[in-house]
């Protein structure tokens, strides 16, 4: 049986309901929340601040450090707290996804710490985390060239879909499921994150990137609205 209808009744190119909020953590220099349906991620930014240990200091530009983690009650079976191989990998790719947008040359010898925490997980957590982190960086008043908007696309059986949920990720029939988290820079449209878990044909990958790009524009609109809302509430 081919995958003709999505489990939760969405269109193939439709994302889950998105929500973004800025300035949610008072003690951080900048913070934000981003959600894709049941997936909720928060991000807090601290800095720029002096970098320790000193040997990591770079007199030409600052350092952006990301730390991604899932809270123990974010998944159906308790996740043991603390760093895992998976969280270390996601921390690293989030860092790479965010570094191109931040003007680190303005803060040599310093570090900007970004902490991403997943409160509730239902696939695409790294995408929600990157979106929240981009908002938190802007909220922290750090000079940035543009924002970054991230969305996951995938191939289920033979169908290219956007913003997968856990059940779709675990789809085993037909050709199975392929999960591709993507991150696009908001202005230049460059890709700063592309991971691929599964199998896909080159032609289908092109299509996946195309619909991912469309969906990332919607994400950007949500991010923009969240930042603009700061002025209205005040």
């Amino acid at each position: 049986m081919a995958y003709t209808k999505r489990i939760d009744g969405r269109k193939f190119n439709e994302t889950r309901k998105m929500e973004a909020k800025v300035n949610i953590i008072k003690n951080a220099d900048g913070s934000a929340l981003f959600r894709f349906g049941d997936t909720i991620a928060i991000a807090a930014v601290y800095g720029p601040k002096p970098l320790h240990p000193q040997h990591l200091r770079n007199p030409e530009k600052g350092l952006l450090r990301c730390n991604y983690d899932m809270i123990s009650f974010s998944v159906s079976e308790r996740k043991r707290p603390g760093p895992t191989r998976r969280s270390q990998e996601i921390s690293k790719v989030s860092e790479w996804a965010l570094t191109p947008i931040v003007e680190l040359e303005k803060y040599p010898n310093t570090v900007i710490d970004v902490h991403i925490i997943v409160l509730q997980a239902n696939a695409s957590t790294r995408c929600a985390g990157i979106n929240a982190a981009a908002l938190a960086l802007a909220n922290a008043g750090i000079p940035m060239k543009q924002l970054v908007s991230s969305v996951s696309v995938g191939k289920i059986d033979k169908k290219v879909v956007v913003d997968l949920i856990k059940e779709e990720e675990d789809y085993r029939e037909g050709e199975g499921s392929t999960d591709i988290p993507l991150a696009f820079l908001s202005k230049s449209g460059e890709i700063s994150l592309l991971q691929l878990d599964g199998k896909i044909r080159p032609k289908e990958l092109d299509e996946a990137i195309k619909i991912g790009r469309e969906a990332s524009k919607e994400v950007y609109e949500i991010q923009k609205r969240a930042l603009k809302a700061v002025g209205e509430e005040k």
Partner: peptide, 22 residues
């Protein structure tokens, strides 16, 4: 704009007044 803040246009000069930051 290169940072988050209030856009201020006074005469010909355009600047962003930061709302946050160190």
């Amino acid at each position: 704009a290169r940072r988050f803040g209030l856009a201020d246009i006074s005469g010909r000069l355009v600047k962003v007044i930061p709302l946050s930051g160190i």
